[in-house]
Amino acid sequence: MKLTGSYTVPGPRERAYALLQDPAVLAQCMPGCEGLDRIGENEYAMRMKMTLASISGRFEGKVRISDANPPESFRLMVEGSGKIGFVKGDGLLTLSPAHGGTSVRFEGDVQVGGTIANVGQRLVETTARMLIKRFFDKLAAAASVLRATESAAD
């Protein structure tokens, strides 16, 4: 399943880029993420509890950042598996200056397997887009908070 989209994050490109590389920020923004533990260069083990209305499931997996080209682009790979299935997302994120901040465009491929793929086909794409949107909403909020703190510090 191909997914593309773009979101605007407040603040300059360099800072948006740095935020997106920060495991603490990623952990805070990824829906349901309960923690990222560094297991290698740009590679983290992830624990996640996904809750979406009645549906819930625990996932364990990995987050990996590669092809870093600061502050313009990098690849983000997220994979997780649990009893209800497995998810693997691999996307290129491209940052460009935009009015009011930085535009983050992603182009990705998401693979879903197991029960969620077999019975959730009707909703997988809608849900995936919603989760990505939540991620960027939180990222934007994090960026705003950061900017507010920075301004306060100025």
Partner: peptide
Amino acid sequence: MSLVPLMKLRLALP
């Protein structure tokens, strides 16, 4: 009508 099937599929685990 939505919850029970999800529980049977073990997608919902209340």
